[in-house]
């Protein structure tokens, strides 16, 4: 299947891929609102790793054919879509971080925020939400946001063997 492959030789650590991913996964799809207004703040699902200066690479989910995150997920939240994408069902996810522990790419982020509200049994005002957050290959777009945003054509969205 098509996923996003980085080419580290030309990654310049600008991190615009992260900005694009955050924007794409915001409610407004507006960069300024995504960063300044939206609560919870959307997370980037790609992570630019860097050794300054001179080496950086943007790492996101490989949508593994035999995905360790899926087998580790205790709730069934982490699952594979018929098109091959590995995605989280946020309704089911409880933030146990089993997937974080299992993913050999470190591609899953912890998304934690507080909301006002009631727990299932009426307790726990100001509920802490814990969700895992990972690349979903931007289902609303034909070209993933990070790929399109990268000014240096680092990210290739393609099928490889």
């Amino acid at each position: 299947m098509k996923i996003v492959y980085p080419k580290e030789e030309v990654c310049m650590a600008c991190r615009l891929c992260e900005v694009a991913c955050i924007t794409e996964h915001s409610r407004s799809k507006d960069t300024i609102k995504a960063y300044k207004k939206e609560k919870p703040a959307p997370l980037s699902r790609t992570l630019v790793e860097e050794i300054f200066p001179g080496l950086s690479v943007s790492v996101n989910c490989r949508h593994c054919s035999d995905a360790p995150c899926i087998e580790a997920c205790i709730t069934g939240a982490m699952h594979r879509k018929p098109d091959g994408r590995v995605v989280v069902n946020e309704y089911k996810c409880v933030g146990c971080w089993m997937c974080v522990m299992a993913c050999p790419f470190g591609a899953i982020k912890r998304n934690q925020y507080k909301i006002e509200g009631q727990g299932a049994r009426g307790k726990g005002q100001g509920l802490k939400i814990k969700l895992s957050s990972k690349c979903d290959l931007c289902p609303d777009r034909s070209i993933p946001a990070c790929v399109e945003a990268c000014p240096n054509r680092v990210m290739a969205y393609e099928e490889r063997n």
Binding site: P6, K7, E49, I51, L55, V57, H63, F105
Partner: peptide, 21 residues
């Protein structure tokens, strides 16, 4: 704190990140 793929030898890193898994 930031241990990651950038710390792996280049060949290994490229093997992991630039090929299908």
């Amino acid at each position: 704190r930031n241990f990651g793929f950038v710390h792996l030898p280049k060949d290994l890193r490229k093997e992991k990140l630039e090929k299908m898994v």
